[in-house]
Design a protein around this nucleic acid. Sequence first.
DNA 1: CGCTATTTTGAGATGGCTCAAGCTATGTGG
DNA 2: CCACATAGCTTGAGCCATCTCAAAATAGCG
Lengths: 239, 239
Amino acid sequence: MLAEGVPPGDLQILQGIRLFHGLGLPELEEILREAHTRRFAKGEFLFLQGDPAGSLYVLLRGRVKLTQSTPEGHEVLLRFVRDGEVFGGIAVLGDKTYPVSAQAVNDCITLCWDGETMAQLMGRHPCLALNVLHSMAERIQEIQERLLEMATERVEQRVARALLRLLRQTGRKVEGGVLIDLPLSRQDLAAMTGTTLYTVSRILTRWEHQGLIQSGRGRILIRFPHGLVTIAEDLVQKT
Amino acid sequence: MLAEGVPPGDLQILQGIRLFHGLGLPELEEILREAHTRRFAKGEFLFLQGDPAGSLYVLLRGRVKLTQSTPEGHEVLLRFVRDGEVFGGIAVLGDKTYPVSAQAVNDCITLCWDGETMAQLMGRHPCLALNVLHSMAERIQEIQERLLEMATERVEQRVARALLRLLRQTGRKVEGGVLIDLPLSRQDLAAMTGTTLYTVSRILTRWEHQGLIQSGRGRILIRFPHGLVTIAEDLVQKT
DNA sequence: CGCTATTTTGAGATGGCTCAAGCTATGTGG
DNA sequence: CCACATAGCTTGAGCCATCTCAAAATAGCG
């Protein structure tokens, strides 16, 4: 049987997903036969850091927030998963635990596979393994980039980069600028950039005075992206 | 023909390498037929950040240092590759550039494959793809861990963790402690932890006074690893 | 034995953190 | 529909970890 909620007609749509790139319809159907569909309500956790890594997920609809915390309770926001993306890839390696927590930012629909099942599928369809490889390689580059930023840049630059990244990923054009289409608190931004919500607040206030952005609770509108680029690259004319 | 420098008798040794785990001798031989052996002298760069990513490497002997730099010239030391490990995995994804530079710390021997060749091999031997997946997943976890540290810990803790990591990876027991078996300058440690060589120097001097370590130029001996753990976990009794 | 790279140390500056307090949207229950 | 509770946000003041820059000491190498 096909996974519930994935009528055959949607197969073409699924081919647009990176994980399934290069697979023919028959293979796709076989792979989907092994999938489960799971829905999560806004705010719900799909899994917690430390849980046994049972499943690999593909997000079909919604947004998922991946975070990692220290024993002392400090939290880092690693990324927002957008629809079409894979996460929880650790599951295919057997007997590991998730190194991150995953929380639904909105109501979400996911496809998921038991780790072992997916490992077998990848054995049968090398293309699938290569696709996962591809997304993992992208992740590595992205995190390395952030590590570099954390190690070499000032907080203000990191916040600017975080906003620019979100803009690229979830930006929605509205009149007067581009809206970050996510509930995004000062605390979230702090957790993305390794600082405190106080410092983020001060920075955003300053930018707002400069007319670069406009922000409310959990809502950020970028009026002048290029200004943020200037800050991120540290090309600012200090007056 | 077999790659030069890899006589058939060494095949068993190669099976111990993570990349080849789970492969039978015949497959191994096929894979090695496509490999080249390359040697690099101490200090030589295997590739530079920004070079087209042509080859995937396995380090057979020696140590390789992976670094990444910003346009402004700040440098971060991502990791030391030990023998048996894979690097340059980006190559199999086609048409990318290396996001890091790789430099031989000692004289090195590597196996390497053209990226496209390796992609084909992985298509034929899913196990190979899974092995690469495995090592990439490990890398992701490791970098995420470091990102978490960078975001939440003080410099002293990060330096302690860096040393403990090196101790685990390259530690060599000698009388009086464990020696980090690598030429490791203050600058290197600074680039691993996102700080300056000045701060590293002060920290090491303090630890030396406390009897935790003993250090000279590019040489660090850890006398009392548990002391470093205490610092890394921030359980220090401030006197 | 002198040269150069590495390391140490000092002094001063400062970015960002901490903690405390007040403010303000938002939505909820009366 | 309003007032109130609450979570999120702003702002101030003081502090301190870490950076910067300069200079001197040291170690290894040719």
